[in-house]
Amino acid sequence: MNEPNSRMDLVSTLRILHEVRTDEVIITSMGSGREWQQFKQHPLDFVHVPSSMGQTQSWGLGVALAQPTRRVVACCGDGSLLMNLGSLVTIANAAPPNFTLLVFDNGVYEVTGGQSTPASTAKRLMGRSINLASLAEECGFRHTERITTLDKWRSRADILLNLLGPVCAVLDVAPQTEDYSVRSPGRPKERVREFAETLQTT
């Protein structure tokens, strides 16, 4: 992982995703869910807040399996992925060709105040960071990529939304240090009903 001050800005990475997306399902959570709400919303957006931490990629897998003709993009943080690492194996085993997992890796539990995760470099023997993209590759994802600059992300985002999946891209982002709490758009039951209706009728 890059040093904190050289990592990408989360909002900038999401803005690029917002610019390149067309008709993909985009499911966000935690930090990505909080920031995604500042962009114009699409009927196929689902902000998975409130969530069960670590389960957003599994919700996305289910949608991808039920709707094989749509591209499904699930966004999670590294802390969330660590909470459900087995999901990488489950996704690779199910092998949905229409699924992209975006991991926004900031090395901390951002929404609770920035505590480092057990995977943070400083806490690990030998001081070596975990390369989550390599982990996804070992689990059997068809394509994995680690992205450390906005230029690279800008050039790869559209491709990663269209490659034969399952795809996993890990983006090195800086932790947000202000206004970092999780933020629900509210109306969870109504929102999920609207999202399901859009999925099933369009």
Binding site: Q55, W59, G62, V63, A64, L65, T90, A196, L199, Q200
Partner: peptide
């Protein structure tokens, strides 16, 4: 048959399947 690695995943995958009309 969708095999998951831990049971919490099972409810989450089922949630996504349900939303997608399965």
């Amino acid at each position: 048959l969708i095999q998951v690695c831990r049971e919490g995943e099972a409810w989450a995958v089922a949630a996504g399947l349900h939303l997608g009309g399965a």
